[in-house]
Design a protein around this nucleic acid. Sequence first.
DNA 1: TTCCAGGGGTAGA
DNA 2: TCTACCCATGGA
Length: 308
Amino acid sequence: MTKMTMRTPEDFGFLAVVYSHGWYQCPPFHWDAEEKTLTRVARDATGQPVVLRIREPRRGTLEIQADVEGKLTDADRRKLRSDVRQMLQLDREIAGFHDLCRRHEHLAAIPELGAGRFLRCPSVWEELVKSICGTNVQWSQAVRMISRVAELGEPVEGYHAWPTPERIAEAGEETLREQCRLGYRAPYIIELAASLRDGSLDLGPIERGELEGPDLRKAFLAVKGVGPATADYLMILNGVADRLSIDSAVYAFVKDRHFGGRRPSAAEIEQLYEPYGEWRALAYWFEAMQEYWWGPAGFDFVPDPGRE
DNA sequence: TTCCAGGGGTAGA
DNA sequence: TCTACCCATGGA
């Protein structure tokens, strides 16, 4: 076992990032609400799965425990630290969003909570699969699909690593349909896995943040199974917040909160959040999280394991 | 039973 | 670009 510590930005709140959206409920993330510890099967510099346990012993510091025999190499340490930075978006600049929150009473608690970053998967591949599993199903059902896909990954200490594209491609459509119960999503994910395996698709430019807004959106939409709502959602995760991802959850929230029980049009929703400019997606997201799921004082009624 | 969830692909206009 | 229609699954 090896322990590492990391400093976090002043505007970073560990719980707020874990609870930023539903990823913490999806393997290979495992959240222990009692111990406030996020467990994740990551991969070291050579691709070997490693169980990481991340917690925040005090604000400003993360403690990362890697369950490995012997010592980690310097390369492994760099890789795992880099994964943690990616998963918790430690390098994301959100000061502008917090400034905006302080100018709006209903968002004033967001900076206090250290919210504004999202829990991320270490790879875009994993996030694409999870997002496709989340289309046209209740979230609790998506979590079950994702959990069954995760079980196709290599077992490690009672957990599973996220399966590689090669492993999914080898498992085949039949396995995704019959065993993982993905239904019509199965061929989309097989096609994605196969194109990554044979190199006809390269997610590198997305991973490295090389694409600007419109090109990034185009890249997501090019993946079969990813439509406008999912592409916009992935954009938000990738740090482009000037566009809402309008799905059924958005309608459900704004209908009661802003339109007196009437279901608004998409254009009306756009208009409502337009004043928040480049941060509009975060302004919506964290308003909804706080009102619907976090509770007024922080995280009193965060659901576990599946929010409806 | 019927509806529909954190939609998307496709064909046809 | 917009609109029907279809697509698995499973909870409500």
